[in-house]
Amino acid sequence: MDIKIPYNEDLRPDTGLYNAKLGIWLFLASEVMLFGGLFSSYILLRAGASVWPPIGLDGQSVAHLLEETIGLATFNTVALITSSVTMVMSWVSLKMKDISKFKMYMWITISCAIIFLIVKYFEYSHKIHEGFIPAHDTYMALYFTMTGLHVLHIIGGLFVLVYFVMPDGIKMWDDEPIRFTNRIEVFGLYWHFVDLVWIFLFPVLYLLN
């Protein structure tokens, strides 16, 4: 017997939303608190430090390396902002029933996410190579925790993005186009949130030191 899950296309009369949309907003609320805890730790540690970024036990501060990596971090900001606009454009393409444009925008989004991860890899290896590991000082501990958690969100999102352009993911478009469009909208909300977090991480960790 084929049981249809209710309210994945129609709006629930009590919430005014389809279920997945309510679910993603509640999930994003929990994500705000997750990153909020880290931002709160950042304020506490920074307010208590006499010098920022602090000087480690080896007598060195990561400040000079941060200036070198501003260019890379700016490039990554542009990559994520681009991925955000291409994500929303892929949803618009589905609204216009243009599946080839949808695929094109999704592949651009995937490329931007991969570029972001590659740049991050070089950034991490450069810092680790210079001895600036999470145990070096409180700034480095926060830097790796906050950007690492953000990178995990990008990796998770990348898997979902790839799934949506693979035959298994995209086949829903043929049978249930509205449900598929809703899926893309819901995933888009997650992706924009990941972009939003980076918009704050970028100045806080790279610029305002």
């Binding site: 705000v32 909020g36 805890g37 931002f39 709160s40 304020i43 506490l44 307010a47």
Partner: peptide
Amino acid sequence: FFLILLFIPV
């Protein structure tokens, strides 16, 4: 709740 969280350090 986010603002409460941010103001805890203060």
